[in-house]
Amino acid sequence: MRDRPVQPCPCSGAQLRSDGLHHGPPKVADLGGGAVAVRDSNNTDLPPLRFTAKEWAAFRDGVRKGEFG
């Protein structure tokens, strides 16, 4: 993973990272074991969304295949 800006995540001490190109939403934190937490940095009052490794892999595969437009 490239060096990216990080900030504390209110989830188990994980660090939220941007995509490296933008500093806005979303921010993603590695929770270990392939699980992640995702937060909209414009709405920091909302809790991060948590995804299992399987859910996150399915999302990434969908993005790579162009399934989201």
Rank of each mutant, 00 (worst) to 15 (best):
K54P: 03
F59N: 00
A37N: 08
C9H: 00
W56P: 00
V28E: 04
G32L: 09
Q15A: 12
A29D: 01
P47D: 07
G13L: 01
D19P: 05
L46A: 14
R4G: 02
L49F: 11
G13F: 09
G32H: 07
R60Y: 11
P25N: 10
L46Y: 05
R39L: 15
G62Y: 06
R4D: 00
D3T: 03
G62K: 01
V28H: 02
P25W: 07
K27M: 13
A58G: 07
Q7L: 02
G66M: 05
A58N: 06
R2N: 10
D30I: 07
P10N: 13
Q15N: 14
L21E: 12
R60N: 10
S41I: 13
E67G: 11
D45G: 12
R64F: 08
F68H: 15
P5G: 04
M1C: 05
R17N: 01
A53T: 01
G34R: 13
F51T: 00
S12R: 11
S18F: 06
P8F: 04
R17Y: 05
A37L: 02
T44F: 10
V36Y: 09
W56K: 06
P48W: 00
G62P: 01
A29I: 05
V6K: 09
C9Q: 03
N43S: 13
G66F: 03
H23T: 14
R50Q: 15
A35I: 09
R2W: 01
K54N: 11
K65R: 13
D40T: 08
P25L: 11
K65L: 13
G34K: 10
K27I: 04
F59A: 10
F68W: 14
F68C: 09
F59P: 03
P5R: 06
S18I: 04
G62L: 02
G66H: 09
P26L: 12
K54V: 13
D30N: 15
P5D: 07
G33M: 09
E55G: 07
K54Y: 11
L31T: 05
G33S: 13
A57I: 04
Q7M: 11
R17A: 13
R39S: 10
C11Q: 12
D40Y: 08
N43R: 15
K65S: 10
Q15I: 03
R64H: 15
R17H: 12
D30K: 08
F68A: 09
H23Q: 15
S12C: 08
D40A: 12
P48K: 03
G20M: 04
R4I: 07
D3Y: 00
